[in-house]
Write a protein that binds this DNA or RNA. Structure first.
Length: 592
RNA sequence: GGUUCGGUAGCUCAGCUGAAUAGAGCAACAGACUUCUAAUCUGUGGGUCGCGGGUUUGAGUCCCGCCCGAAUCACCA
């Protein structure tokens, strides 16, 4: 049990015994005492005044006296206005450190057979272009969320739904046929996803030219965009694809395989993975079935033109199209189909979709529809909605060439890490150096993205935003590397020295207190689906450690007991930093 | 217009279920390396928490209204 709980329970007993007030312990939340006052934890006594019928100061005084007399851990207290500042016995903190140090799973809940099964969908790329900065945010959030859910005792299945069919894919295919001259990723010396992306752009270029030409001949823009020969060809191709035309299907699968090879490389570099991948080409027909089933049961209705709709007006929403008049699927239908397959494959108890906030309405509707269709988790599905990444001159626009490519970005970050560290002389092999630069570069990128509240749009300034000092990934990584250096140089005998009798000083107590916060933060991050909480916590912990490191010697300390204590403290901090960063999908280097 | 989400220091952001004088980082300025890693540490300046009401002993936080910004409201995905 944590010190917070102990104190809360003792206080609960105190107000019961002093004032006859029934106040459950979980309603009393001791806070960390502000650093300008003496004390470790503070209890605000205002809520008790109605029962005590005394002034705030007197009430605090009485509770303080009760705690000193009845609570083992409390040493003394002071009162300022309605704030009861409590000093915990220093010896108590030593025990706390020992228990945290001894528990490699401190703060995590066990996953077992009866754990809840949570499926998390993230990434969800299209196969017509490479991953960009928006996907980076998505991937990092999704992966981190899966780690956080696991740490909170859930079984997690990470999944990805690949949008591998549709008109946009046909555009790339068509462009490749027309202008590709049989080129392959091998011949081009280029990742497959980038190659296909180039053809998508190529299509757009020619298409625009055609539209422009038709418009000079007097067509309106909409008309021209509909009548352009290229788009007609693309539509023909889509029709052939849907009819299962062997040639088109073969080209389709070849080109998609190129893209998947490219994606795999990017995912691997980024450090994210999936337990199960679904493809829209497999799921879109399933959705249609499910919708027709719903139509039979009278949940949906058919218009005169044959299209099928859901009426959601009673839920405060609109009419929503589910099948086109020609019987083909729309986006919503596909998501229903995917849900159906997933439900067949796994006993899902909770579903989390990591998808951008431009889809908020879509998921509101999806939740209602899945619920109507009888999916247990439909009503309570979580749309983990995150904001867009903006650039200094606005949004990313592929047409204007302002898309930040994921592969380029990661390479740039690693190069920056090399640049920043070129004057440092930490000895390591070339292989290790390369790996460390990778860890630091990616760490900077991941931390930068994950420390921000996911709901907010975030600004990415390639020149200025990525810093390696201050509140950054490398700052935290440095703290870890620094501790490892100390541990490497320490005397093994110190590790076995008993320091139970040691009474830690103020800075040390503050650090231990921070360490115990880890459990609270992990739980809170799980409850609110917030990697940012973990990121900010690990930063605070690192900062507290760096202050301690600056003020006190560790190996330099002559007293063997103090030395042993500080080594244990350092080692424990490093452990929590490493585990905290692991929740974010960020690695830590042994030296840097 | 409807719905959803944002607005905190010059910039980028914290601020959990209400609590002490609203905090970090960057940028600016001034300091600390013969020392366990200075990617560090210390200090200074910088705020009408979008605006106005309300609830409360107490509001950046909760409620109402307004202003500004974003997303969305397709037989696109």
């Amino acid at each position: 049990m944590s010190i917070d709980n102990i104190l809360a329970q003792a206080t609960s007993l105190a107000v019961k015994s002093l004032y006859g007030l029934e106040m459950p312990a979980d309603k009393i939340v001791p806070t960390t005492t502000k650093k300008e006052f003496e004390g470790n934890l503070t209890i605000v006594v205002f809520p008790f005044l109605k029962a005590s019928h005394k002034r705030a100061e007197d009430t605090a005084q009485e509770i303080g006296e009760y705690l000193v007399a009845n609570c083992e851990a409390v040493e003394k207290f002071n009162v300022i206005k309605g704030f009861l500042n409590i000093v915990i016995k220093p010896s108590f903190w030593t025990t706390v450190l020992q228990s945290v140090a001894a528990d490699p799973n401190f703060g995590f809940k066990q996953v077992n057979d009866s754990s809840k099964l949570v499926m998390i969908e993230y990434s969800s790329p299209n196969t017509n272009k490479p991953l960009h900065l928006g996907h980076v945010r998505n991937n990092l959030l999704g992966f981190s969320l899966s780690k956080i859910m696991e740490a909170n005792g859930n079984k997690v299945v990470k999944t990805n739904i690949v949008n591998d069919r549709g008109i946009h894919i046909c555009k790339s295919m068509l462009a490749w046929l027309k202008w590709g001259n049989g080129i392959t990723p091998e011949i081009a010396g280029k990742k497959g996803d980038h190659l296909i992306g180039d053809f998508y752009v190529e299509f757009d270029k020619h298409f625009k030219a055609e539209v422009k030409e038709l418009m000079t001949q007097g067509m309106s823009q909409e008309e021209a965009e509909r009548e352009a020969p290229l788009i007609k060809e693309a539509h023909d191709m889509l029709k052939k694809w849907e009819d299962g035309d062997a040639q088109v299907r073969k080209l389709w699968s070849t080109m998609n395989d190129w893209v998947y090879a490219g994606f795999d490389e990017t995912y691997k570099r980024m450090g994210v993975d999936f337990d199960k991948i679904y493809y829209e080409s497999d799921t879109y027909l399933e959705g249609k079935e499910k919708v027709l089933e719903g139509l039979d049961k009278g949940m949906f209705y058919r218009k005169d033109d044959g299209s099928v709709w859901a009426d959601l007006t009673s839920d405060g929403l609109d009419q929503k199209l589910l099948l086109r008049s020609d019987g083909t699927s729309v986006y919503m239908t596909q998501d229903i189909g995917t849900a159906k397959l997933r439900f067949q494959d796994y006993p899902i108890e909770q579903m989390i979709y990591v998808v951008g906030n431009e889809q908020n309405y879509h998921f509101q509707v999806l939740s209602l529809l899945l619920d109507k269709l009888g999916f247990k988790w439909g009503k309570d599905l979580i749309h983990f909605s995150y904001g867009m990444v903006e650039l200094p001159n606005g949004k990313m626009k592929s047409r204007e060439g302002t898309v930040v490519d994921a592969d380029d970005l990661m390479n740039e970050m690693i190069n920056t890490a090399r640049e920043v560290s070129k004057d440092r002389n930490v000895e390591m092999s070339e292989d290790e150096r390369e790996n460390v630069m990778r860890i630091i570069g990616l760490g900077a990128l991941k931390y930068f993205i994950l420390k921000v509240d996911p709901r907010k749009n975030m600004l990415f300034n390639p020149q200025e935003s990525i810093d390696f000092n201050g509140n950054t990934g490398p700052f935290v990584q440095y703290t870890y590397a620094r501790i490892q250096s100390v541990l490497r140089k320490s005397n093994p005998d110190d590790a076995s020295t008993d320091f139970t009798a040691y009474r830690p000083n103020e800075k040390e107590v503050a650090l231990i207190q921070r360490l115990t916060d880890f459990a609270t933060v992990v739980a809170e991050a799980g409850r609110t689906y917030s990697p940012a909480l973990v990121a900010n916590y690990v930063f605070e912990l690192s900062k507290a450690y760096n202050q301690f490191y600056h003020d006190y010697g560790i190996l330099k300390e002559e007293d063997a007991i103090v030395r042993a204590f500080r080594l244990s403290l350092s080692k424990t901090v490093a452990g929590i930093v490493k585990r905290g960063f692991a929740l974010l999908g960020i690695e830590v280097p042994e030296r840097m």
